[in-house]
């Protein structure tokens, strides 16, 4: 009985120490993740809109910001313009390869990829001739873009056909009047 009790106690201690180890490891992983995230996304990075940046440029100048919006237009060497619905802001990406992640650029036929950019905001960038820009440190595609379906407007087609008829009629009248004279 005593041996059994001892064995049970040992098992309990072992399982408790295993739990303790797991909890310890979990806490370690959490803290490691926390510090890594601090390194990647600095704690003072604020989620901003283009209106914030344009109305309060001094407040955010030189700071790390998080900016989200749709990639529009073209990829211009190391630049991509991102529109958050109010204004488009130029994003400078030092490693051009990061822009390869973008699949759709917004235009008449497409909704562009939604991007989340973390980077340094400059109200008048010294490196880029005084541009108001964000130097991206991290770029992530949060939602994939897609083609836009523009349905054919039949009422416009009917209007066109009616107008075509009227035009032909007007030209016939003109020809008749011209022949009479």
């Amino acid at each position: 009985m005593t041996n059994d009790k001892i064995q049970m106690t040992n098992k309990l201690i072992k399982s408790q120490s295993l739990n303790y180890l797991l909890i310890k490891r979990f806490i370690w992983v959490l803290s490691f993740g926390f510090w890594i995230s601090i390194l990647i996304l600095p704690a003072n990075a604020a989620q901003v809109s283009s209106t914030d940046l344009l109305n309060k440029p001094d407040l955010y100048n030189g700071k790390i910001v998080i900016f989200e919006g749709e990639a529009v237009g073209d990829i211009l060497e190391n630049w991509i313009n991102v529109n958050d619905g109010n204004n488009a802001i130029g994003i400078f990406v030092r490693e051009k390869i990061a822009l390869d992640e973008i699949s759709y650029l917004g235009d008449y036929k497409k909704v562009g990829d939604k991007l989340k950019i973390t980077g340094q905001f400059n109200k008048a960038c010294a490196e880029h001739g005084g541009d108001l820009d964000i130097h991206a440190e991290h770029l992530e595609v949060t939602a994939l873009g897609h083609p836009i379906n523009h349905p054919f407007d039949l009422s416009k087609l009917y209007s066109l056909l009616i107008l075509l008829g009227v035009t032909v009629f007007v030209y016939i009248i003109k020809t008749i009047l011209h022949k009479k004279k």
């Binding site: 416009k156 035009t167 007007v170 003109k174």
Partner: peptide
Amino acid sequence: AEWGPALDFAITLLICLIVGELLLI
């Protein structure tokens, strides 16, 4: 292949021709 916009201009072109020709007549 922007069919809708092309239609917009075709409609307006015809309006211009009708208005212009009616004025000329």
